[in-house]
Nucleic acid binder design. Structure first.
Length: 187
DNA sequence: GCCAGGATGTTA
DNA sequence: AACATCCTGGCG
């Protein structure tokens, strides 16, 4: 299974988000199978940070496709995004859920008592299980030896409305593997 | 099982 | 003041 290069993210956010379902997410010894993502677009998407945050627009300008965009949400959850920067469009893919594949011991150590299938079942949960925080912000993680994304088997992919937002809540830019037990919510 | 409420920090 | 969330406790 090949590694996904930064070039993968030189397209549009919706395509990238959809194609990441089933891929492997690798982070310092932990591996998860991506089962849920969302797309956010730099232009025309009121739910994207670039809509209202100057810092997010700066980030898109200064960073490369495939770099990590990590931020703290609701004062307590780190959310992990990947910068998408194509010629025609740019934005982010939010990794919303993964199924734990390897490094389960390390994950359980960070989440004592949590059921295995829930360790990555949500954008805040997965960063906690994988030990991801703000120090990953801006990193070119695809190029790091211990981190990155690998191609997976193709699976059935369903589409839905993005979760937890108030603006542009009707954009069907949530993607997932409906058979997974590790979704943040049912489709 | 469902729902209400609270924790908590950064942005603008 | 809003926010790309999660957990707990109350109630059935």
């Amino acid at each position: 299974m090949g590694r996904i290069p930064p070039k993968f993210f030189k397209r549009d956010p919706v395509t990238c988000a959809r194609e990441l379902i089933g891929a492997g997410f690798h982070w310092q010894g932990c591996v998860g199978r991506i089962v849920e993502t969302e797309a956010y677009a730099s232009v025309g998407d009121p739910a994207c940070h670039t809509w209202s945050r100057t810092g997010a627009r700066e980030f898109v300008k200064r960073h490369q496709a495939g770099d990590a965009y990590v931020y703290l949400n609701y004062g307590m959850h780190w959310l992990f995004n990947i910068l998408v920067k194509g010629d025609e469009a740019s934005g982010f893919v939010l990794i919303r859920a993964v199924e734990p594949v390897a490094g389960l011991d390390a994950m359980r150590e960070r989440r004592p008592g949590m059921k295995n299938h829930l360790l990555g079942a949500g954008p805040g949960r997965l960063t906690r299980a994988f030990g991801i925080d703000g120090s990953a912000h801006g990193s070119s993680f695809l190029d790091q030896p211990e981190c990155g994304i690998s191609r997976g088997k193709s699976v059935e992919i369903v589409t839905g409305e993005r979760i937890g937002i108030s603006k542009a809540a009707d954009f069907p830019w949530r993607f997932g593997d409906p058979t997974s037990a590790s979704l943040s919510r049912r489709f």
